[in-house]
């Protein structure tokens, strides 16, 4: 009997695994099959032309650049805020400190809050300060959104800092601040990977920027102009009645997927290659 159960569940497991990979394979194939034919050089190098949304010439450069602007700035701001937080809870606070566990819980909650809520919240703040939908608005909301992602994934890495390493540093007479300089070398590859994966998540987020960044066919030249983003661009093109435009949406989706894939592959490579100074 127990051998039957073993076989039965084993078969069930293999089946589940096949289902998982069938689903995920289907997604990649669908995007590739539908996106590739509509992909062209114009797509990535041109702004949308006059008749873009009824199927005329043009590309989604506005959305690509908008996404990169927003995510680039948010990443820098997010790192500036989250790296100190991560080191504060891992170096300055003790392992079982109440404050540390409270901070971790709060960031878990912040991480779980939907991006649409961030969007709505940022929108109310923008109204409060009299800001219009703009590049700045998009940057603000993605920064707020990305900080919990950064903190959580970096904390995961920082928690694995060997206690011996910190002890060795302290026993040379280092202050905690100086110990951070040692710790950062140890977990730098982990931080880099976490950063790239988080960027991947931020660049794909649409709901947050919907309220705050707005949409435009041109590339923003200052912080108070609206900015387009790839996910929103996909969404708008997809709701068009014209088949050509919908096909471009697939191409844009392919583009977005590729960007995220490249980021995450670079992230992995960093983990493998730049661990040379790391102490096992």
């Amino acid at each position: 009997m127990k051998f039957f159960a073993d076989k039965f569940f084993r078969a069930l497991m293999v089946l589940s695994m096949l289902i998982v990979f069938a689903f995920l394979g289907s997604i990649l194939i669908t995007i590739l099959k539908n996106g590739w034919p509509a992909m062209s050089w114009d797509m990535v190098t041109q702004l949308p032309g006059g008749g873009f949304y009824i199927g005329k010439e043009g590309g989604v450069l506005n959305a690509i650049v908008g996404s990169l602007y927003i995510v680039g700035a948010s990443t820098v701001l997010g790192l500036l805020a989250s790296i100190p937080i991560v080191f504060f809870i891992n170096i300055y606070l003790k392992k079982e400190s109440r404050l540390a566990s409270f901070v971790r819980l709060s960031f878990d909650v912040l991480y779980g809050i939907p991006s649409i809520v961030y969007g709505a919240f940022a929108f109310t703040i923008m109204i409060f300060f009299g800001l219009r939908t703009s590049l700045l608005g998009g940057i603000i909301v993605i920064t707020l959104l990305i900080i919990p992602i950064f903190v959580r994934s970096m904390d995961e890495v920082a928690r694995q800092l060997p206690k011996d390493l910190l002890d060795a540093t302290y026993s040379l007479g280092a202050t905690r601040f100086e110990a951070i300089k040692v710790a950062i070398r140890q977990i730098l590859p982990g931080i880099a990977t976490a950063t790239l994966l988080s960027i991947g998540r931020a660049i794909g987020d649409a709901a947050g920027v919907m309220f705050t960044a707005g949409f435009t066919d041109s590339i923003p030249t200052s912080l108070d102009q609206p900015a387009a983003t790839l996910p929103l661009s996909i969404f708008f093109q997809l709701s068009s009645p014209t088949p050509e435009v919908r096909e471009r949406a697939y191409a844009s989706a392919l583009l977005l997927t590729l960007i995220v894939l490249v980021l995450s592959i670079i992230g992995r490579m960093i983990t493998y290659r730049f661990s040379k100074n790391k102490i096992k």
């Binding site: 937080i85 300055y92 809520v117 961030y118 109310t124 900080i147 601040f177 100086e178």
Partner: peptide, 30 residues
Amino acid sequence: RLAKDRCARSVMLALTVLSLLLLVAMGVGL
């Protein structure tokens, strides 16, 4: 060195508290 350490500590604490206030601000704001 000690001053630097204390200074870094306060800045980091401030950032941590500030980011936690985000949660409160979000709730209150909405």
